[in-house]
Design a binder for these strands. Structure first.
Lengths: 162, 162
DNA sequence: ATTCTTGCAAAGCCTTTGCAACTGC
DNA sequence: GCAGTTGCAAAGGCTTTGCAAGAAT
């Protein structure tokens, strides 16, 4: 179901501490931040700020909306999370320890399916070279309806005919 | 600079009228809508709602924010415009009479550079087939810094060294 | 002790919407 | 004249932020 993880030498928590310590003015590592990093990296999910808040609260963690947003931004800066700018809200996913990939997004159930494509990496490299464009990142999203939702729809329309 | 246009048999205005007339309950074609269609298709630009309002007002057209938003949605439904979900606001570009393409987005000057890539079309087709995914659309955005901004930056840093 | 983080609520930003007046057909 | 459109201002949805209290180093 998931793509294969990449070898990493530090835990996400260690990597985040290192990032915080390396800032021009050292930033602090708090309990809530530690809980967030560990919670996020204990799962492999695409998530948004709201569902993270809801899930962590349900599991008994102390989290506030403002701190979630602030820490998510730091985690993106630190290279631990990737931001997926798809639709009206931001989604996040593991960056650290997880390979570059692209997404299929189902417009009915909002599931995200990951896939890897060397061909796309090639296109990115060639296009940036041709345009003397300094690459910083890319996002590739295919929108549509996943197999399950499609089957549900077909079953329903067959029933409608009866 | 631009990609080559595609042959079309109707004017954008005609195509929009046809779309409006074909709705379950026929919708009306108003003066402000006509002005918008003609204004938008008289230029080739990526634009957002705000800049469209500003530009049209500057050229003496009567436009209101609510109507701009409402009409942009209709133009997307009608297949005249494509919506580019990049960054915090929506951008729009011609769909009718313009070929499918992808974008490089400069993070300094926000310029969008278009490019076409058959390889990407192939990847889309293959991936959707493999995942039994019903394709509805895709978006591919490469983020980075364009050549001009890069040169400006390099010139500046050279000056800084003096 | 100092400086950063937190949490609340308020503000910001973009987009949508309720409603009364208006207008295309 | 009916049904859809407009324009205003208000509301909505998501994210950021000012500030006073609290915590990390």
């Amino acid at each position: 179901m998931h793509l294969q993880s990449v070898e990493v030498s530090q835990s996400p928590e260690e990597k985040f501490r290192e990032y915080l310590a390396s800032r021009p003015r050292a930033q602090r590592f708090t309990e809530q931040q530690r809980d967030m990093v560990n919670y996020i990296f204990s799962k492999h999910n695409h998530f948004d700020a709201d569902s993270l808040i809801e899930d962590m609260k349900r599991e008994g963690f102390q989290v506030s909306r403002a701190t979630i947003y602030r820490t998510l931004n730091k985690l993106v800066d630190a290279g631990l999370l990737r931001r997926l700018d798809v639709g009206p809200r931001m989604y996040y996913e593991h960056d650290y320890g997880y390979p570059q990939h692209e997404h299929l997004v189902c417009q009915r159930c909002h599931k995200m399916i990951e896939f890897q494509s060397p061909a796309i990496e090639d296109v990115v490299r060639d296009v940036c070279r041709d345009h003397l464009f300094h690459f910083e990142g890319h996002s590739f999203v295919i929108r549509g309806v996943c197999n399950e939702c499609n089957r549900a729809r077909m079953t329903k329309s067959r029933l409608d005919l009866v």
